[in-house]
Nucleic acid binder design. Structure first.
Lengths: 256, 256
DNA sequence: TAGTGGTCTAGACCACTAT
DNA sequence: TAGTGGTCTAGACCACTAG
């Protein structure tokens, strides 16, 4: 058959993407439209629920089967669907997730605890050599320093010093400190997607002991993070956790 | 054209998979053969090196372009190649790896240190409730308990208690303790591919202090790991690291 | 202008599962 | 036997890059 893209024997130019009717001259590829349609169908379905069969989608969208397969392939690749030859395509059972990055709030939430934050300090500073190197800036460059006492269910859990590249966040301090740092970054198109963490054990100094309500010299975990948004380092933080109350969880995969 | 699979207008039934000639009646799908051919070409190439173009592979293997694309798709998905529209397909630049699982030996090696181990204890025991739960066994089941003092460049770094499911490892103790636990597991088809780690800060007790050559009450990091090989939990370990000498590094990704 | 990857078609035969 | 996913063909037009 001659290729007359976007023009079907029956139907001609389609209109809106409702119930299997594709946008005719849109620049959204058909396989993307099919993919998003299926994603919507499946979004809140139980694992094991059957997805539409490939030939069913072929008829529904009036596209070739390879186009449908392309759509399904990507959903399978991202772990949303799984194919069982001879049986069909089904909503995948949750797989083991590897090292998912979380904010303090998310971390506590996943443990069934309520996270709270108390700002101890929020100001513009000039970067010292350590912070500058971590943020890939030059010593003396302006940074935002935000120190918070973080509680879980009302109990002190850690003291966090976050340093942000002010150049990437003009007017950040003036707009009032947000409830969630990561959401505030996301609002500016700097949602952190990758982090390097380091963790070491230490003892609390007097200040830390006072804030965390433990004796000076008590065990603490020091946690440092470099958070990146699209190849840009947006946040560097150093946190001191109570050693008696906080355990860090990590999931790791091993390459084949 | 009529579908006469594995029989081409020119060439007929092919022989061995050398230089683009596919196995004719083999059960290895063509896209897999093309994929592995390209993987071999590219295995040790520098990032940025051009891979063969899709049409080039079409001619070389006498297959349809969709078949070549299927092969390339999977290499792109696994991060080996990257496509640049209008330019070609290239060996991908290394991406940020997320949470890679490592053995103590690998961990120290990556820091330029030499790892050594001294076995303090290696025997058959019956699982206590905690170990049994972690190994998904029943309390009282036989486990192998292996305690090691681990050094880096000759200095004590941690004491590790590893517990192994003896049912999965018959004769393990009798065969003499291996240099590398993970390699020994791999030899038995139980190479760990996934791990759950937890890390907390604490202080050393008297025994630990003596072994690690730090004062009792000094800061330590307690690290627990559950290691899985193909859905089977093969190892559970509890390690105590010197807080003044060891920092744990983790890379994390965030889902989109 | 030639070459590349991105998208798409309208079929086909296969092995497998379920009825 | 009907239906499913797995594989495969032999083309096509498009937008984009590079010489």
């Amino acid at each position: 058959m001659e290729q007359t893209q976007d023009e079907h024997p029956k139907g001609g130019v389609a209109s809106l993407s409702v119930e299997g009717v594709l946008v005719g001259h849109g620049r959204v590829p058909k396989h993307v439209q099919v993919r998003e349609y299926v994603r919507g169908l499946v979004r809140e379905a139980q694992p094991g629920t059957a997805a539409p069969s490939e030939r069913e989608l072929v008829h529904q969208f009036h596209v070739a089967r390879m186009t449908v397969r392309q759509a399904m392939d990507s959903l399978v690749a991202e772990g949303l669907l799984e194919r069982i030859p001879g049986r069909g395509t089904f909503v995948a059972h949750p797989r083991r997730t590897v090292g998912r990055m979380r904010s303090f709030t998310e971390e506590m939430g996943s443990r069934g605890m309520l996270a709270e934050s108390q700002t101890l300090l929020a100001r513009r500073e000039t970067a010292g050599p350590g912070v500058a190197r971590a943020l890939e800036m030059t010593a003396g460059d302006p940074v935002i320093h935000w120190r918070r006492l973080r509680r879980a269910d009302g109990h002190p859990m850690c003291v966090e010093d976050a340093y942000l590249n002010e150049v990437l966040l003009p007017g950040f301090l003036q707009s009032g400190m947000p409830t969630s740092l990561y959401e505030a970054l996301a609002d500016r198109g700097l949602r952190p997607t990758w982090a390097e963490d380091s963790i070491t054990a230490d003892v609390a100094n007097a200040d830390e002991g006072r804030l965390l309500e433990i004796p000076a010299g008590g065990p603490v975990m020091r946690h440092s993070r470099r958070a990146l948004a699209v190849e840009k380092i947006v946040e560097v933080s150093r946190s001191v956790y109570r050693g008696d109350r906080f355990t860090m969880w990590v999931q790791l995969g091993r390459e084949t």
